[in-house]
Amino acid sequence: MKKDNQWPLWEVFIRSKQGLNHKHVGSLHATDQQMAIKNARDVYARRNEGVSIWVVKSEHIHASSPDKNDCFFDPANDKVYRHPTFYNIPDQIDHM
């Protein structure tokens, strides 16, 4: 068996503009944080896609399980106060 030199996997998050959240854009391989950030810049932000980059080792990400989607996400659907779309705003105000 050949020696395993696979570099660790990292997830990349980029903030495209001031004021927006960092958004997951993809993954890459790197041996350390410094290399991960540089690689992220070269791979995912070479067309000016961002103003800020976060990287995190993939192994540190814990995900909700798709099997449990029902109990995780459905209950929020019937709680209208979590999706406030019902406020009446006078027509004169077109944007709020």
Binding site: K3, N5, Q6, W7, T31, D32, M35
Partner: peptide
């Protein structure tokens, strides 16, 4: 190269 980068890290 990959091996060296890992070793350095």
């Amino acid at each position: 190269v990959k091996e060296a980068a890992l070793a350095h890290a």
